[in-house]
Simulated assay, not measured.
Amino acid sequence: MTNTKKFLAAAAAVVAAGTVGVVAAHAAAPAEAAGAAPKAAVATDPAGGDLNRSTHLSVAAALKAARASLEAAGKEGQKVSVAVVDRNGNTLVTLRGDGAGPQSYVSAEKKAFTAVSWNAPTSVLVGRLSQTPNLKDIPGTLFLPGGAPVQVGGAPVAAVGVAGAPSGDLDEKFARAGVAALGKAAE
Rank of each mutant, 00 (worst) to 15 (best):
V124N: 11
S107W: 04
T91D: 10
S81A: 15
V116C: 09
V82I: 13
A100T: 06
R96E: 06
V82A: 13
K79T: 14
L95M: 14
A112F: 07
Q78S: 13
V80P: 05
K110I: 07
V82P: 07
V82G: 12
T122W: 03
S104W: 01
Y105R: 14
E76W: 04
S107K: 14
K79Q: 11
L95I: 15
A112G: 13
T114K: 11
G77C: 09
S104K: 07
A115G: 10
A72C: 09
K79D: 11
A112E: 08
A112W: 00
F113Q: 15
V85A: 04
A115S: 14
V106E: 13
V84G: 12
T91E: 15
V84F: 00
V93Y: 06
T122S: 11
T91S: 10
K79A: 15
L95H: 07
A100E: 05
Y105F: 11
Y105Q: 15
V84N: 07
K79G: 07
T94S: 12
P102C: 01
L92T: 09
W118I: 05
V124T: 14
E76C: 06
R87G: 10
G99W: 01
A112Q: 08
A115W: 02
N119Q: 08
S117I: 05
G77N: 07
V82E: 05
K111W: 04
Q103A: 14
A108M: 06
Q103L: 09
V106H: 08
V106S: 14
G77H: 09
R87Y: 01
T94Q: 05
G77Q: 11
G99E: 08
G101F: 07
A115Q: 09
F113K: 15
V80N: 06
Y105C: 05
V84D: 01
S104Y: 00
